[in-house]
Lab assay of single mutants.
Amino acid sequence: DENEERIRAFALYKGIDPEKARELWERGEINKDDEEKAWREYK
């Protein structure tokens, strides 16, 4: 689903483990601007 892809995109963008990215996502600790930037680059 799209959230999974967004988490993966963010992990790649930040160079972090996707599981770590998922934890940040679930806790609401992902910066929305960074997340959008990562998503645009990923697509």
Rank of each mutant, 00 (worst) to 15 (best):
D1T: 12
E2M: 13
E2H: 12
E2F: 13
E2K: 10
N3R: 14
E5V: 06
E5S: 05
E5N: 06
E5G: 05
E5A: 11
E5Q: 10
R6I: 08
R6P: 00
R6V: 05
R6D: 01
R6N: 02
R6S: 03
R6K: 10
I7M: 05
R8G: 02
R8S: 03
R8Q: 10
R8H: 10
R8M: 14
A9I: 08
A9R: 08
A9Y: 07
F10V: 15
F10D: 05
F10K: 04
A11Y: 02
A11P: 06
A11S: 05
L12E: 14
L12N: 08
L12G: 04
L12D: 13
G15H: 08
G15N: 10
I16R: 00
D17T: 15
D17S: 15
P18K: 10
P18A: 10
P18E: 14
P18G: 05
P18F: 15
E19F: 07
K20G: 04
K20R: 12
K20F: 13
A21F: 02
A21Q: 00
A21M: 04
R22Q: 05
R22E: 02
R22H: 05
R22D: 00
R22V: 03
E23W: 09
E23Y: 08
L24F: 05
L24V: 03
L24C: 13
W25Q: 03
W25G: 00
W25A: 03
E26K: 09
R27M: 10
G28Y: 02
E29A: 09
I30M: 06
I30K: 01
I30H: 03
N31L: 09
N31F: 05
N31E: 10
K32R: 10
K32N: 07
K32G: 07
K32Q: 10
D33Q: 11
D33A: 11
D33I: 09
D33M: 09
D33N: 10
D34E: 15
D34P: 01
D34N: 02
D34W: 05
D34G: 02
E35D: 09
E35P: 02
E36S: 06
E36G: 03
E36A: 08
K37D: 08
K37W: 08
K37C: 14
K37Q: 12
A38M: 08
A38I: 06
A38T: 02
R40F: 13
R40N: 13
R40G: 07
E41C: 15
E41T: 08
Y42A: 06
Y42K: 04
K43G: 12
K43E: 10
K43D: 07
